[in-house]
């Protein structure tokens, strides 16, 4: 993985540097849904501080891949090691990994019966056993960071989609995760709201968060990713640094995919 030192922009902050410490290591991972072979021989090493964008046609297994990383989906073969903890069927390991790995979903999945603040403090209080006051302070810190502290006492149903997604990001950050997974975070949003969410994610990237994003936002990929992975039919077809990936895709399928999504 010599191609990792890909900070093409010289002015990026030092935090965006990638360390050589391994955050996630996936080896020979296979997964089936019933008879359907969704993920085939996945090998992927993610280093701390790395920002990876995963793209590909729908049904190519990209969401399934990142959902395997925090055990929302079970894999049947191969190994996944997250932050040094092997992902097995041991529930303790799974809960431990989940509290270290934040996740944002396409449909936000905020808890509609809790206020924004309660959404953010719930997991720290119950999983990390943080005192309520401290959890609320942390929550307000991150809500300010995603620029919606004034909505803290509203319910998710009263917020716009973009605001909800930013709350979802803040909710994950409140657990102080080491790795963040994004599963098409902007796909369910109106165009004008996509920017506010992407800005939040860019800010997060600049602070050095290890990120895996399934997204079709190619501008985002160009700007913050240091690796773009293209998946098709359950396999990693191509991966490269964004510059090369977009300018000079090698695989036929990648070329076709890029010509389709960048063609208009």
């Amino acid at each position: 993985m010599a191609a990792l030192d890909t900070n093409t922009d010289g002015d990026r902050t030092a935090a965006m540097k990638v360390s050589d410490e391994v955050a996630i290591k996936i080896t020979d991972m296979n997964k089936w849904f019933g008879q359907f072979h969704v993920l085939r021989d996945i090998d992927l090493t993610v280093f701390r501080g790395e920002r990876i964008v995963i793209c590909g046609p729908s049904g190519s297994g990209k969401s399934t891949l990142i959902r395997c990383i925090n055990a929302l989906e079970e894999h049947q073969q191969g190994s996944i090691v997250v932050d040094g903890i092997p992902l097995s069927s041991d529930l303790k390991n799974i809960d431990k990994i989940r509290s270290e790995v934040g996740m944002c979903f396409q449909h936000f999945n905020l808890f509609p019966h809790l206020t924004i603040l309660e959404n953010c403090t719930l997991a720290p209080i119950w999983v990390r056993k943080t005192p309520k006051r401290e959890a609320e302070e942390t929550a307000m810190y991150f809500l300010e960071k995603v620029k919606i502290p004034d909505q803290a006492n509203k319910y998710p149903g009263q917020l716009s989609g973009g605001q909800q997604q930013r709350v979802a990001i803040a909710r994950s950050l409140c657990m102080r995760p080491k790795i963040m997974l994004f599963d098409e975070p902007t796909s369910a949003l109106d165009p004008e709201m996509i920017k506010e969410v992407l800005d939040t994610m860019i800010q997060l990237a600049e602070e050095g968060m290890t990120m895996l994003c399934v997204t079709h936002e190619m501008g985002f990929a160009r700007q913050v990713a240091n690796r773009v992975i293209f998946m098709d039919a359950g396999q990693i077809v191509e991966q490269n640094e964004p510059e090369a990936f977009f300018k000079n895709p090698q695989n036929e399928r990648t070329q076709l995919f890029l010509s389709q999504i960048l063609g208009h």
Partner: peptide
């Protein structure tokens, strides 16, 4: 929605907590 279970899981809540709180 299934997403509620997944969100609870992804935050590291265990089964009794997820049921009781979410």
């Amino acid at each position: 929605p299934k997403g509620q279970y997944e969100a609870a899981d992804s935050l590291g809540l265990d089964y009794p907590q997820a049921m009781r709180l979410i």
